[in-house]
Design a binder for these strands. Structure first.
Lengths: 226, 226
DNA sequence: GACGATAGTTATAGGTCCTAACGCAAGAGA
DNA sequence: TCTCTTGCGTTAGGACCTATAACTATCGTC
């Protein structure tokens, strides 16, 4: 938890702003869910809120900024879901905790595919401007994975070859000091596998083949963490 | 190879149409490469071809139809690249052939990321209308994978549990009769892993962590086909 | 050579994002 | 309590987009 910005008592106007921003984002999400990111229109959001289009530009500089905000919120939400799954008291064993994490990842994505697509789908709009915020938000989700994988043990996976190993330790060091390069690499690979499975499932590729995605995932689960 | 539609000698007009359609698609690809799918504009394509916007509607019913066509072409192109890699005379051993296939998949995607994103990125527009064509095009690419994996041998992978096994055999049967359910499942998983790695790399996620994607891929290659 | 199909043109309707200029309400300070 | 300033929301408009309609001119075919 980074230090919360000192909870300066908000003025009424600030509270109003915050609340309206929230409502706008919620309306945007509902539009997103049914029309996809392309169909998200500022005017339509305004109409849904009983307000005329350009009014929203008092709250978001642009449609892209709104989208970026949605992406960051989605990362934060996914991170929360992962944290909840990883820290559930039931499974003290690392392996069940790992599987719970993987299932939570998939469940989150299936429950709100439009938000998942928002995360990994589009070439992001305000690329340079907000890039750092996005990377940070994504790293927060990765950290949950790192934590659980560390508990899973560094298993005698062959240490990655040199140029890679130092990159991995440098990266892991910034986020979870005790992590070795082998675990970091494992995290990357697990992440990519999860994403591969989930994104294909969401895109409907398994269903189009007449194959039940649930069972594919369960079958994949055993070999996920290598 | 499905039977080619009888090569009725094309009239001059038909040949002209075909050629213009090709030029439009090529111009669209070039726009796609620099502006992303959102920036693809019919007027801009027209301008690039020295023709005024609405003229293109003689050749494509809509912007979405044009996009769909691009997707199908991309699948076909990817399939060709995979076939070429899988059937290269050099490697007769199944394992090197498999690795060549995997590398070819990644190389194709890296060489033209905008086309790869087109394949797996967006929720497709003309969803119902052209769905079957899209599925077929995608299956053609999968078949290359199936072929090589079959040669890799059915390895004593535990046969998938029942409901899944019959779905897999039904699917494999339609495309490659001799394939068993274990191999079919393996193909699905390999595909999802390849896609996971490649799509994260293309989205810049590895680079954003300061990690060289080449090395991640090489490290992942060994454990790809399980 | 005359006809008919069709390529390409401009004009236009309806939609998008976003900016600009305005009026008015509501919070902040005395 | 009264004033002042901040800033919200409105409408108008520019620039762009997709897509259709009506028209012209050209090109292939008979």
């Amino acid at each position: 938890m980074p230090a919360m910005p000192a909870p300066e008592p908000l003025t009424m106007r600030e509270r109003y702003r915050a609340q309206v921003r929230g409502e706008v984002k919620q309306a945007a999400l509902s539009q997103l869910a049914e029309s996809g990111p392309a169909g998200l229109s500022v005017s339509a959001i305004g109409k849904q809120l009983g307000v005329s289009g350009p009014a929203l530009y008092r709250y978001f500089a642009s449609r892209d900024e709104l989208l970026t905000e949605l992406v960051i919120d989605a990362y934060a939400d996914l991170t929360d879901a992962l944290r909840a799954a990883a820290s559930q008291p039931a499974g003290l064993e690392p392996r069940p905790r790992f599987e719970a994490l993987a299932r939570a990842y998939r469940s989150w994505a299936l429950a709100q595919p439009h938000r998942y697509r928002l995360l990994y789908g589009p070439p992001l709009p305000g690329y340079d401007a907000h890039a750092q915020r996005l990377v940070d938000a994504s790293q927060a989700a990765m950290n949950q994975l790192l934590g659980v994988l560390r508990e899973l043990g560094d298993r005698t996976a062959p240490a990655p070859p040199q140029p890679l190993a130092s990159q991995l330790t440098a990266w892991a060091l910034a986020h979870d000091p005790g992590t070795g390069p082998a675990t970091a690499l494992r995290a990357l690979l697990v992440w990519s596998r999860l994403h591969g499975l989930v994104s294909l499932e969401i895109a409907g590729n398994f269903a189009a083949m007449g194959i039940d995605p649930d069972q594919v995932f369960e079958a994949a689960l055993g070999a996920l963490a290598v």
